[in-house]
């Protein structure tokens, strides 16, 4: 922690200690892979550390850093030329869950994997972070209407996935 204290001050230390697990989980859902999540969080934390005098003074540093995570992922996604997000393997531990739950969780993950990065981030912010549309719009830097459209289309996509799963197509 010595370097950190020298670089960004005790405010950063306390914040990073408390927030990193949640940030990694958030990044994992946004990126769809552990490696990409770690890269995105690393990049976001490096930026936050360098600018902590500014970021830490904001009303909600979490929102700003979540935005950095999303931006880092979108940039990496673009540079790699990928058109699809990776689909993580289904956990073996889920076999103990009721079958219907597993099917539904898999449908959620497949739906997320098919979404463009910004839309996927909107969905995660809405249904995992439980943010309001206006807050999501602020984080993603888009209009609230765009967020509503992202979420609406994602819900439609999930509904299609669930219906396909019920028909045994998934």
């Amino acid at each position: 922690m010595t370097d950190r204290a020298a670089d960004a001050g005790p405010g950063f230390d306390a914040w990073v200690e408390a927030r990193v697990p949640a940030l990694v989980r958030f990044a994992y859902l946004v990126t769809g892979s552990q490696d990409d999540a770690e890269d995105a969080v690393q990049s976001a934390l490096a930026n936050a550390c360098e600018k902590w005098s500014w970021v830490g003074g904001r009303e909600d540093p979490d929102a700003y850093v979540r935005r950095m995570v999303v931006n880092a992922h979108i940039s990496a996604w673009r540079r790699s030329g990928r058109r699809e997000s990776p689909v993580a393997e289904v956990r073996g531990t889920e076999t103990s869950d009721p079958a219907a739950t597993v099917v539904r969780h898999d449908a959620v993950w497949r739906t997320c994997a098919g979404l463009p990065p910004q839309q996927r981030a909107a969905v995660v912010l809405r249904f995992y972070e439980d943010l309001e549309y206006a807050e999501i719009a602020e984080i993603l830097g888009v209009a609230e209407a765009t967020v509503r459209s992202h979420v609406h289309r994602a819900l439609a996509a999930l509904r299609r996935e669930l219906e396909a799963a019920e028909r045994g197509e998934a």
Binding site: L29, V108, W109, F127, Y128
Partner: peptide, 14 residues
């Protein structure tokens, strides 16, 4: 379903 699915999947993150 979205909330439950994301919540469950988030637990996979190391």
């Amino acid at each position: 379903v979205f909330r439950d699915g994301l919540q469950a999947r988030a637990e996979d993150a190391d």
